[in-house]
């Protein structure tokens, strides 16, 4: 296991030194940044807290960072934490009542779905500031400015790799914590968990806050990298579904699951974009939808879940 991780780590250090195209590097950066967001989603998703609200956290992180930079000249080093704080606050405002009044399962998904749309519509409606549905671009500075968090592609690769690795470390630490045991118990039987002395609300809010904060951070960074923000691609149901799809297809119970999901979705996305161009606008979501249904029915633990199960059986 250790060898496999070392090899993976070493392989990921190579790309900036290889003669690969800018486009390939671009795809790798996208995969790493989105993998970070998907990993963040599974931190709560794996415990039955299926959130369709992560588009909201992503949008808040992205837009807060970019707007503070463009309008007040506030560096992303402050903009990102403020975006994260906003997302955490929203997560608490939604999460606390949901937990207190036992809004779980489908109802929880619906509440968070509404949240996502509220954020997207707010961005669209606040056109004078956010650029509305046309999107916006963070004000450009000469490349590789640490202050503006704007880098060349190679530097971005290192940033993305570092952030992705931090995401995995956090996932692992949650996986080994008492919170994980408590959340397993809660998803098995919430009433019994409360009866044995687990503070259900507190545990749920803990994973929700971690998940929302990391998602907002990921969103902020994706915005900084792409230098273009659009409410359709950074907030709203579309993004939420993309996150859920990637996490489920990759496998939400295995540490590398969301990363595999990111490879799958982003490669698929690029493939469809090249294949259909602008001729068949609804194609990508349609294919996503069909694949999501197939995965949920035939592979509920995702690609990594199936692989892990095979390996376990082989060893036994």
């Amino acid at each position: 296991m250790k060898i496999a991780w070392t090899l993976l780590g070493a392989a990921l250090l190579l790309p900036p030194f290889l003669p690969i195209s800018e486009y390939t590097l671009h795809i790798l950066i996208l995969v790493l940044l989105w993998a970070f967001v998907y990993t963040a989603w599974t931190i709560m998703g794996r415990f039955g807290l299926v959130s369709l609200g992560h588009g909201a956290f992503l949008g808040l992180g992205t837009y807060a960072t970019a707007l503070l930079w463009n309008h007040w000249g506030l560096t992303p080093w402050l903009g990102l934490p403020l975006g994260i704080a906003t997302a955490v606050l929203v997560a608490l405002v939604i999460g606390y009542p949901c937990s207190r009044f036992k809004v779980v399962g489908h109802y929880f998904a619906l509440v968070t779905l509404a949240l996502t749309e509220v954020v997207r519509l707010s961005i669209v409606a606040w056109r004078d500031v956010t650029g509305g549905s046309l999107g916006m671009t963070p004000d450009l500075v000469p490349a590789n400015s640490l202050m503006a968090l704007q880098f060349t592609r190679i530097t971005w690769y290192w940033v993305a790799l570092g952030v992705w690795a931090v995401g995995l470390v956090i996932w692992h630490r949650v996986d080994r914590s008492m919170t994980r045991s408590a959340m397993d118990a809660i998803s098995d039987d919430e009433t019994a968990a409360a009866a044995v002395g687990i503070d259900v609300t507190r545990q749920k809010l803990t994973v929700t806050i971690i998940s929302a904060a990391l998602t907002a951070l990921g969103g902020g960074l994706i915005g900084q990298y792409q230098m273009y923000l659009n409410p359709e691609t950074m907030a709203g149901v579309g993004v939420s579904l993309q996150i859920v799809f990637a996490a489920i297809s990759g496998g939400m119970y295995v540490i590398l699951g969301p990363t595999v999901g990111a490879v799958l979705t982003i490669v698929l996305q690029e493939f469809l974009r090249v294949l259909f161009g602008t001729h068949f606008i609804g194609a990508a979501p349609t294919i996503y939808g069909i694949m999501l249904i197939l995965f949920i029915i035939f592979m509920p633990t995702g690609i990594c879940g199936v692989v892990a199960e095979r390996m376990r059986r082989k060893r036994a």
């Binding site: 045991s181 118990a185 098995d188 039987d189 019994a192 968990a193 009866a195 002395g197």
Partner: peptide, 26 residues
Amino acid sequence: IAHVPENRRLFPRLTVEENLKMGAFS
């Protein structure tokens, strides 16, 4: 005050030891 609920209400997917661990969660 500890409560042994009606119908036991164990955490069915957790092991015995994990169930016991949950009893000492506070």
